[in-house]
Amino acid sequence: MKPKVLWIEDGLFAEVRPFLGPLINSLRFDLHYAFNAFEGQKKMKKEHFDAIVFDIRIPPSDPSTSDPDTTKWNNLYEKSGFDKIAARLGIKLIEDAVTEYDYNQINLGIFSVETAYELKELLEKYPEISYINKNERVPTNTILKMVECLVKGEKYVPPTD
């Protein structure tokens, strides 16, 4: 059985697409994807993953979804003035993963444009979570490397620029 990995990210078809290649081609993981907070939560609720990679600035839900569970995310989004940057729903999703779905923080990783300073509170609260700053200097095999660590229960520390 391949380890099950969930990647919650709304830019999978856009800016992070090149990062998918090495991950898919490794053929070592059973990969699952979510494009927004609601989908991410739904998947975490339904099954257990060996590793989860979170984006922070994600949309609440697909606007055409009528599932009542989208309300929570849509309300959080509304409170932030319909701004996914301000809403930072990924943070809430990580909180839910640890508190509601009993994920061990060592199996969780963040890949986000948010700097470590901007995520200081979260990273101090969950010091075992792996974190990679999303920028153009990051090699495309980085997510693969992080996922390899996460499934083993190891914290991934990216090499410094």
């Binding site: 999978l12 078809f13 697409r17 090149p18 990062f19 998918l20 290649g21 090495p22 898919i24 081609n25 053929l27 994807y33 495309t140």
Partner: peptide, 25 residues
Amino acid sequence: KNELFNTFENEIPFKEMWISSFLDA
């Protein structure tokens, strides 16, 4: 790598993701 080329249609759920996978392979 060959395994990937035999299974990509089933293994990669979104067609948009094929390219990144092929280029890497």
